[in-house]
Design a protein around this nucleic acid. Structure first.
Lengths: 208, 208
DNA sequence: AGAAATTAATCAATCGATTGATTAATTTTG
DNA sequence: CAAAATTAATCAATCGATTGATTAATTTCT
């Protein structure tokens, strides 16, 4: 029988190569080879190399957004909401740092405008969720007055930095973000740090 | 007379294209065209496309390190030192966000190992400067006890995020990091934010 | 100084290799 | 048998690099 899903094979092999080599440096021949599939299958299933890329990105982004859209509910306090969202983002992004790396790379080369805007909009959407929570918190006085956009850059930037930068740099000399066990430890450590940072920074000072 | 420096022209045109399109997507033909130079001049002066890229990166990195290596001196307090370094980094990186973008892109594709390690080492060096300041501050009790590496990820990540992400996302709806005037405003805003954040986060709590 | 020799700079043309994509033929499946 | 899936072979286009020839500038020799 050995019925193999060639379509899925292509997606899997392509994602791995795109992450590793980037879009341009990845050839359709290499994708076909790694997927153990004839070259023409790529165009048969996805129309083009671009089609493969779009499919991968769209899937992951949709998946990402779906898992995060259900985080902001419930009658929690502003701080509880914010910490919950941060924890969700961190866990989600660090669960697949390779894809996050690829996404950022793509965002830094606005060559495929369609994909560029898809990523940008996805980010903007997530950003607005956080922005609303912080702004509301400031309005009702439970948060200090801060530069909201810059604070969001701090949150997102910290997560990205841990996900993308060579882990030997970020997390110390021993941990490797590409190792599953280490990644769990890094994730916990990052969440703890962000919580501590946000609580310390946003909690109003009790003046006399 | 009109003696033009073709070598410099090539470097300038190439950097612009590398930033905009990425290494792979930039053709030597386009570089030659934009530099108003014959194709063969690229190989004549730099040996190869890779040679051009290496030259650009090496120059910028050396320049960057030179400008920053002189920041950590003087008999300032730990906090003063740290804020000074952060201000220096921010100013320097935001003065050329395009290059920073390209550097991160390159760091996410370890295809040219030589360049990868050059960038990595440059970053590691800068990282160690900050780490020492923070660690010393913690030891002597002027800083709170925090996860140093993660805090560095926050500092670097925040700066990178502002430099790299589409500015409409980071800095609000009106500012554009590619506009010179806006960039100045963003730089000031980012420095203010980081100072506020770091001071708030690292200043020991005055318990009862 | 001036002719001769040497080096540096520049060019058009083209190389072989590789790219993404397509075709036409074949096999598998329902 | 007909539709879908798969293959090998091939397409034009583009890639980075190199060639041999030509011109401009510099150095050497007398």
């Amino acid at each position: 029988m050995e019925k193999i899903d060639k379509r899925a094979n292509i997606l899997e092999a392509a994602e791995k190569l795109f992450i590793e080599l980037g879009y341009e440096a990845t050839s359709t021949r290499q994708i076909a080879k790694d997927a153990a599939v004839n070259m023409a299958m790529i165009n048969y299933y996805f129309g083009s190399k671009d089609g493969v890329f779009m499919e991968i990105m769209s899937q992951r982004i949709a998946d990402f957004n779906a898992q995060l859209s259900c985080l902001d509910q419930g009658n929690m306090s502003g701080m509880e909401k914010l910490l919950k969202v941060i924890e969700g983002y961190t866990t989600r992004i660090l669960s697949n740092p390779g894809f996050h790396k690829m996404m950022h790379r793509e965002l830094s080369m606005p060559q495929r405008p369609e994909m560029f805007f898809k990523i940008k909009n996805s980010m903007a959407q997530n950003l607005m969720i956080i922005e609303k929570i912080i702004t509301d918190g400031i309005t009702e006085g439970s948060f200090r007055q801060v530069d909201v956009r810059m604070l969001i850059a701090t949150i997102m930037g910290t997560i990205s930095n841990v996900a993308i930068s060579p882990s030997k740099i970020t997390s110390g000399t021993t941990l490797d973000i590409n190792n599953e066990e280490d990644r769990e430890l890094i994730t916990i450590r990052l969440i703890d740090h962000l919580k501590d940072l946000i609580i310390t920074y946003l909690t109003p000072k009790n003046d006399t």
